[in-house]
Design a protein around this nucleic acid. Structure first.
Lengths: 209, 209
DNA sequence: AGGACTATCCCCAGAACTGGGGATTTGGGG
DNA sequence: CCCCAAATCCCCAGTTCTGGGGATAGTCCT
């Protein structure tokens, strides 16, 4: 079994040393670098330098945040896996991290044994997350429709969300443009919007389509 | 510690019996029902009947799918937790399940020990997922921008995605409507679209905003 | 049988948008 | 120093959308 190369970014020296100790005494891992700032990490792995397999990343850092650092590291090394390790337990941090390309998200309350297990899980193609984080993620998919659009109106709205004009929606649904117009007037009233882009925005942001 | 009430839906009799056996011999759990179809499960828990704390749900079922069953059960009992347990390892099944309100997603290859652990994790406010499933979920958040919108153009696009008209966007950004018009023409050219709703749809579906 | 809702179609007028021009200023990069 | 991209502004003509009417037919519920 091949060695897993790891780096970490953590500004608190005590925690950083603690993590170093945990990782060093584990077989199968090799620590490539423990950086106090995102800038240090980015500077250490320009495009010519082969990066580690996995980064452990704090979020709250002086200078570039762990999220920005993740985005930049992955821009230069698209195959790099980044596992967030932070105290931050809020939607903003979680979703920004995932959008930046993080492969997992652990809270700092994670015990060492679970941390090591998560590292292996990430290597094996998983996405380890602390339970409360995973719940935030699954909850973000939930759809709750308070609106009362009829099936036909939902079809019309879906057409708008596919970028269709009145005329195109009419062709797609085999009805006249007048009928599309009628439906859209009803949709606007129910959603309390006044334009196509407002309706599309509301529909897509709420995952109605 | 209070007992966790569980029901399950699984059409294959052998598997269903196997799951029953696993759950029955575990302390802290009580099995409220093992149903072969979604319709049976829905019929067993009309709104007057207190539902279990957790449902284990297969997806591939005769009649109503596990996803439809989940949607219906949670419509009647909004606080019900549903944990998918299926062979299906594809984006469609995973995201449809989560949108229907599933709290977790396990593959049938999950060993009994891990299944029992996942049940406890779901009860404790987590969202247990098999590693490959979790990876699908985190990967769905990733953003890759191939477009080359300038910062200002991105601001304009963001305004459109908030439902703004030309005039409103102009007010918000302290520029004239003519300038908004100019920017939008450039945005349309770069994104290869020809209307606001098409641009908004493209931006939101790709998570650019 | 009547009422409510849905889906279908039409007209019209004003507002908003789209795409084509062109113009100026500013700040970098070669 | 010159060129170019970016941001700002303007005009115009044609198209599309928005919101206000109204109409007919079918379904479902009472």
């Amino acid at each position: 079994m091949t060695l897993l190369r790891i780096s970490l970014v953590e500004d608190d020296e005590e925690i950083r040393n603690g993590l170093e100790a945990i990782l060093r005494q584990e077989d199968g891992l090799i620590l490539l670098g423990a950086f106090p700032t995102g800038e240090d990490a980015i500077a250490a792995f320009p495009s010519q330098v082969p990066p580690p397999d996995l980064f452990l990343m704090d979020i709250t850092l002086p200078g570039a945040s762990g999220i920005e650092t993740t985005r930049e590291l992955r821009r230069v090394h698209p195959d790099l896996d980044v596992l967030m390790l932070t105290v931050r337990d809020d939607d903003q941090a979680v979703f920004d991290s995932l959008c930046a390309g993080a492969v997992g998200y652990l809270l700092k309350t994670t015990p060492p044994r679970r941390l090591l297990q998560a590292i292996r899980e990430a290597r094996d193609g998983g996405s380890p997350m602390s339970p409360s984080i995973a719940r935030r993620v699954t909850a973000s998919f939930r759809v709750e429709r308070d609106h009362t659009l009829t099936p036909r109106e939902q079809e019309i709205l879906a057409a708008l969300c596919n970028g269709k004009s009145y005329a195109e929606a009419a062709r797609d649904l085999f009805i006249s443009e007048s009928t599309v117009h009628s439906h859209i007037k009803n949709i606007y009233r129910k959603l309390e919007v006044h334009s196509k882009n407002e309706a599309v925005a509301k529909a897509l942001r709420n995952r109605w389509v």
